[in-house]
Design a protein around this nucleic acid. Structure first.
Lengths: 189, 189
DNA sequence: GTCTATACCCTGATAGAC
DNA sequence: GTCTATCAGGGTATAGAC
């Protein structure tokens, strides 16, 4: 692991616990037994650390969504795929998801622009899947935005709950979350 | 409106937009055409402003939950009541809900303790309602914590979505949210 | 690549004149 | 009750020795 990666990993933990704005470069340096000035040999600014954390996850979500879109399967299967990769990421990188949720607003300039673009594209792609599901009568409930909102609310805050209930196996979690999110949406078959 | 209330109302807007830690007392003072020092004639610290905002909402939720518990109605009706007062508060005080979600961790001492106590009590009350619903066969899905999590995730982040879709009437929002949250949980009748 | 020293600015908060 | 002046501390970041 490079020094830069060590800095980012440490920042992930601290940013999640206390929030980006509440963690100083001195705090960060202390954890890895450095002086704050030394951090700047590996990163160019505090905001760069935030951007690496947040944009990395955002790119991952974008990538996964593109795979799902390319599969040419029905809406239900696509939604299952979306839920699956949210759960995967929640388990493998909960800090990054928490930071993305809470501190994306502290990105600056092009980082902020890129983030918003990826987020909006992701939401639009998901909306398209839902619309398709309604057209093909796979989805019963008619209000597209409410479905979109309800799905994303649950998936984006999953990390808060997995923390308390990490005794749940990955597979059980996937099954239960998929059940509760889709059974209310899908036409009973 | 007292001066103190004016300060708190202004803080609500700023804290929501930029986060508690990113808003300085000078920022706050500037908006209401004050010098920062003058704020301290009305409030004793920055954290007191946060506490007033957050604990106010927390007390409101606690109060509403106590009313619902006292009603002696079935679980479905109780859940509808919970959803209703979340929607009410989202429409009437979205800033406070956003700040509660994002910045409660910056409360200190007794304020922090009180907040956590009220939050935990609320979650336990809601869990009891769900448990009761399962026992009385009103609720089909069996995993109590997943139901609790899914409900609260959606209700707590409703403010993010109402902002974008404030064209929705209050009643339509209540109906649609109640539908999507309960139809997946309740036994088809 | 890490350190010490430090620049420069912003922070919450207080003292005391008016 | 508002102001000016100020304090003590902490923020990000850089310069330059080693």
């Amino acid at each position: 692991m490079t020094r830069k990666q060590e800095i980012i990993d440490t920042a992930k933990t601290l940013f999640r616990e206390r929030g980006y704005k509440s963690v100083s470069m001195r705090d960060l340096a202390k954890v890895i037994d450095f002086k704050a000035a030394s951090l700047y040999n590996h990163i160019s600014s505090k905001e760069e650390i935030l951007a690496e954390i947040v944009l990395d996850v955002a790119r991952y979500f974008t990538h996964e969504m593109n795979i799902i879109k390319s599969l040419n399967v029905d809406a239900k299967t696509q939604l299952e795929g979306v839920i699956k990769h949210h759960v995967d990421l929640t388990i493998n990188n909960p800090e990054a998801i928490a930071i993305l949720n809470n501190d994306w607003m502290h990105l600056e300039g092009k980082h902020l622009e890129d983030f918003k673009m990826m987020r909006d594209t992701y939401e639009n792609d998901l909306r398209s899947i839902i619309t398709q599901g309604i057209e093909h009568k796979e989805i019963a409930f008619q209000n597209i935005d409410i479905i979109l909102f309800s799905l994303l609310s649950t998936l984006r805050t999953l990390h808060l709950w997995y923390r308390k209930r990490s005794d749940l196996s990955e597979n059980d979690l996937k099954k239960d979350i998929t059940d509760i999110l889709l059974k209310g949406i899908l036409v009973k078959s």
